[in-house]
């Protein structure tokens, strides 16, 4: 399916243009979500996209599914209610880095711990963009932000390790540059019966990039291209991973899913 077909089938075209800055990685990442849904031929009526607050969270508004734009950090808690109330629905959560791991960090680890069948996609641009460039829990150590005027002294989270450690059963990372891989990971995440966590490294040329002299959007995409390496290659040759950002499928280990476990309890009382 080409771009315009995808657009007309899955986007609320009358809601476009989107609010994202020129060069922002979020549009590409949103498209990988749409293409994954298309590839899996999911029924649009049965897809729910939930988001929190921030630049990333505007994505669902452009998409022609059941869409819910919630409060900051709480997307997974809303999503948990939806999924539990109607397990037939495919629930996909789109969050930002601050959204998912600062204000929503507690909800992230507990949704992962329960292994509830929700696919979580984090658009990680290392900054609070919507509010104008404050440091987030994924802003690298030493980098500048409007609230880290002398360099960030907070240590950043590795979101994938966090999710895996908390109990996610499918974990992977790709980038706005590695869109094909991103789409593939999302497909597998949706297919995983359990909590899936896919981090999409995005770029924010407007705030993070400008503040830290990372160059324009082209340069920032080039950075992703040149500094990321698939885990599979590093597994074969660990030297290749030195000073690189790992991408690819990190963890795929299906475990009993929360709602299925709950259904066993319900079934105890039937007939």
């Amino acid at each position: 399916m080409n771009c315009s077909e995808t657009t007309s089938k899955y986007y609320r075209v009358n809601r476009l243009p989107h609010i994202w800055c020129a060069g922002c990685g979020h549009g590409t990442l949103t498209n990988t979500v749409v293409r994954a849904i298309d590839k899996l031929k999911l029924n649009k009526d049965e897809v729910v996209i939930v988001s929190g607050i921030g630049c990333s969270s505007r994505a669902p508004g452009y998409l022609d599914f059941n869409t819910l734009h919630t409060t900051h950090g709480r997307a997974l808690a809303f999503a948990t209610g939806i999924k539990l109330a109607n397990p037939k629905l495919h629930v996909i959560v789109i969050m930002g880095d601050g959204d998912s791991s600062a204000i929503g960090g507690n909800h992230l680890i507990h949704a992962a711990r329960r292994n509830i069948d929700i696919t979580t996609i984090v658009f990680n641009n290392n900054i609070y963009g919507m509010t104008g460039g404050q440091f987030s829990p994924t802003t690298p150590y030493g980098d500048l932000a409007t609230t880290a005027a002398y360099g960030n002294i907070d240590k950043p989270f590795d979101l994938c390790s966090l999710a895996q450690g908390a109990g996610a059963t499918y974990v992977g990372r790709a980038t706005a540059y590695h869109a094909v891989l991103m789409q593939k990971l999302i497909e597998k995440g949706i297919q995983n019966k359990g909590f899936s966590f896919i981090e999409g490294l995005s770029i924010c040329p407007t705030y993070y990039g400008r503040k830290n002299k990372k160059g324009n959007a082209f340069k920032m995409h080039s950075f992703l291209k040149e500094n990321c390496i698939d885990k599979k290659l590093v597994d074969k040759d660990p030297d290749k991973g030195r000073n690189k950002i790992l991408i690819g499928e990190f963890y795929n280990n299906p475990q009993p899913e929360y709602i299925e476990s709950y259904q066993v309890i319900i079934d105890m009382f039937q007939g």
């Binding site: 819910l68 808690a77 999503a79 209610g81 939806i82 539990l84 109330a85 109607n86």
Partner: peptide
């Protein structure tokens, strides 16, 4: 948040 989600699901 969860009860709002569940209510939206009917």
């Amino acid at each position: 948040a969860a009860i709002i989600g569940a209510s939206l699901a009917g």
